[in-house]
Amino acid sequence: MSTVIEPTRPAAMPLRFSTPIGGVAGTSFKPEHLPDILEAGPRRGFFEVHAENYMGDGGPPHRALEAIRRDHPLSLHGVCMSIGGPRPLDKAHLARFRGLVARYQPALVSEHLAWSTHETSFYNDLLPLPYTEATLACVCDHIDQMQEAIRRPLLLENPSTYVAFRDSSMRETEFIRAVAERTGCGLLLDVNNVFVSSTNQGYSALDYLADFPLSRVGEIHLAGHAEQADDEGDLLLIDSHDGPVADAVWKLYQIVIRRRGAVPTLIEWDSKIPAWPVLQAEALAAQAILDRHQSAAPEGERHAA
């Protein structure tokens, strides 16, 4: 008689919170904040991590993530799956992602409408794609594969973009709505990305939000951006995640929450990382807005038009 021996894998961490986690504000988790976070003890909120940073076999990163995850809901945010690229998904990467979901039992799981790998090169950026029937079919196929692998719905994030493709035949909101309808995925609405892209692409952020399928939004991102200039000397916004959320983005956020009701909201801050209290204060500002709309039933997208 033969026995199949499964490779030993770390046991899944038990849930200590109810899912869905509701209208709470969270922050990016940065290892340098770990001592402050642990010292303060369990708090309302959640932490989001970039999945790839925890794809090593072992060592301190996993110990830190276990410590965070023991007392707080976790959001697992994939950055490098290259869902928007024409290449087949990287099977090894998909397996690693599935392993992290199984081990840490995150409350939220998300990825980007973008690509980062082509041929053998990994470009470490969220690169744009044209919105066409062909790319729509490809993106849907990739999301189907991911959702099959992780056995749960994925939240797909709208991108920040700096260029447009000549052969795009759909608006971004149209494209995203079609992806969500075909694959059943949820959406991560990055309000800063809406502001950045609308400025860069010359359309109205309010029109974008009016056209966005808000009822499918399961998480919101807020972040800071930087300013540059385009070829014509006009303002070009850069999705830099290196500072506080801009006033204009807070205003859009309030409009979204008024329409959608309270949903988990993340303050993304990935470079020039401030002291923990500064980051926490941004999350508290989002929490105050969420708390004003906790009981309000979402109006749904029918009012959004």
């Binding site: 744009p128 044209p130 700096y162 260029v163 447009a164 493709f165 000549r166 052969d167 860069n200 692409q201 010359g202 359309y203 540059q228 200039a229 385009d230 070829d231 014509e232 006009d234 070009l236």
Partner: peptide
């Protein structure tokens, strides 16, 4: 060649 700015704008600094 595949990329452009909005409303006929250039794409060099954008790219």
């Amino acid at each position: 060649e595949v990329v452009t700015g909005p409303h006929g704008k250039g794409a060099s600094r954008r790219y």
